[in-house]
């Protein structure tokens, strides 16, 4: 009887293996294989990966795992095999009627951040920048302390929106640099301030009981900055996804 696996991978290394398995599963889903067939193929593949790592070293590092993954067939190779399987199959579906499968890469995920995140960041951030600039210029001139505080908050939020925009504009196919991540984090940190700003404007409206141009533009500005924060959050999530993806290469 053959022995079973004795190797225990750290959570980080296990994640690398699971990400490769996820890519293969995506290809198998595209090929419309049933869950049990996918499970069978993935179990075989995982077993093979573990056995290859086990043979390589008793104490695997990230490099060992990546080297093993790089020696495997790319995930899309499974598509070629299963595609013919589907054509031969008598399941009543034809391969030509299937939607075109998404190409899955074993090396890197689609590296470009989503266009939606970039453009929403640029548009919303741009609007927030302009509104914020007009607002703090107008509010800063008023003597009331509250409005002064609001102006400070607004300035901070303004800087955050600007930084967020810079991050989005600097989006590159490669994972973001440390500086970009720091800027995105700073921008995200302006969210509570934005909410505070909205609250301050709302209370002013209640106290004064009149809709002034400041209150109105305050609502608009706050909403815009909050929108920018949402766009930056989307971007940050994308960056995190890029970082979590192993940088393997096919041989």
């Amino acid at each position: 009887m053959m022995k079973t696996y004795e190797l225990s991978l750290s959570p980080e290394l296990q994640t690398l293996v699971e990400m490769r398995l996820d890519l293969v599963e995506r290809v198998l889903i595209d090929a419309r294989l049933s869950r049990s067939e996918r499970s069978s193929i993935l179990q075989e593949l995982e077993g093979q990966i573990l056995q290859l790592i086990e043979r390589r070293t008793e104490h695997p590092t990230r490099e060992d795992v990546l080297a093993v993954l790089a020696d495997l067939d790319p995930p899309e190779a499974f598509l070629t095999e299963t595609d013919e399987w589907m054509q031969d199959s008598s399941r009543g579906r034809t391969a030509s009627s299937r939607p075109l499968p998404q190409k899955a890469s074993n090396s890197t995920p689609p590296a470009q951040p989503p266009l939606l995140a970039i453009w929403s960041g640029v548009l919303v951030g741009g609007t927030a920048l302009m509104t914020g600039f007009l607002m703090c210029t107008a509010v800063w001139m008023l003597p009331e302390l509250v409005l002064g505080l609001v102006a400070i908050i607004q300035i901070v939020a303004l800087i955050g929106a600007g930084l967020g925009m810079a991050c989005l504009l600097r989006s590159k196919p490669q994972p973001a640099s440390g500086l970009e991540r720091a800027l995105a984090s700073a921008s995200a940190a302006t969210a509570p301030l934005t909410l505070l700003f909205l609250l301050a404007m709302a209370s002013l409206f209640v106290l004064e009981n009149e809709i002034s141009i400041f209150v109105l533009s305050g609502f608009v500005g706050g909403a815009c900055i909050h929108g920018a924060w949402l766009a930056v959050t989307t971007y940050m999530l994308w960056v995190r996804r890029l970082q979590r993806t192993p940088e393997t290469s096919t041989s």
């Binding site: 069978s40 193929i41 067939d73 499974f78």
Partner: peptide, 13 residues
Amino acid sequence: ESTLYPVLARLAR
């Protein structure tokens, strides 16, 4: 592996 494992799954099915 990309050739063999689908074949095994198909033969089992």
